[in-house]
Design a protein around this nucleic acid. Sequence first.
DNA 1: TACGTTACCTAGCAACGCTAGGTATTGATC
DNA 2: GATCAATACCTAGCGTTGCTAGGTAACGTA
Lengths: 113, 113
Amino acid sequence: MVSSKNPAFLNGVPELLILQCLKGRRMYGYELVQAIRDATGEHVVLAEGVVYPVLHMLEREGALSAERRTVNGRSRIYYALTDRGTARLADLADTWRRLTAAIGGVLGEPGHA
Amino acid sequence: MVSSKNPAFLNGVPELLILQCLKGRRMYGYELVQAIRDATGEHVVLAEGVVYPVLHMLEREGALSAERRTVNGRSRIYYALTDRGTARLADLADTWRRLTAAIGGVLGEPGHA
DNA sequence: TACGTTACCTAGCAACGCTAGGTATTGATC
DNA sequence: GATCAATACCTAGCGTTGCTAGGTAACGTA
């Protein structure tokens, strides 16, 4: 666990990536799948079955707002960060950095005390 | 998944840390718990219930060799990397670096193309 | 008309590792 | 001489995460 608390301590990465993408601009689910695939050079490929449930969960918790729009006859649901979502992103990103720095230190990577 | 294959893509970190610690010198389970806690500045605290099963699994798969010794009346089981364990460590560390680099890139951290 | 793409969705499962217990010995404290 | 903390090992069982594998429907093109 990370600094005392429990959730599997490395989970929540799909959530982190989704929130980070939405920080730049509002996006819809199908678009997020490809954005994450591209942005990570295919190192992280989240299937739709991963992305959609996370989006629904984040909306339910008030971290995202959703807006249905039709473009070219396609119905899309655009998601945008709320204040709560912005805070959540900051928190997750911070945890992630601390954790990877700590593990990187053990692995003997350059750039740590 | 990482570059096409499935296992939860961030799991195996306890395993990675244990193997890395054993790269330096042979250690026993109880010692590993503390070594990892200390080396990560308490950012990663693996309970014994996490460490021992991983050690058993790694030994079963031939990545570690075990040797029982008694020190100060305490019975300890020292583990050491085998060639297979060394290879496994290299593989896990590589995957970890690629993955964290990719995610770090999305998070807009300095030090990526 | 058939196929690939876009775009959404969910049920169900597997695995990882965390919780929470357990045993036994040693050494210090009272 | 009893009690407690620390050392050192162990396992059963559970919860969460997120992956698999499906399904629907509309659009464009061959």
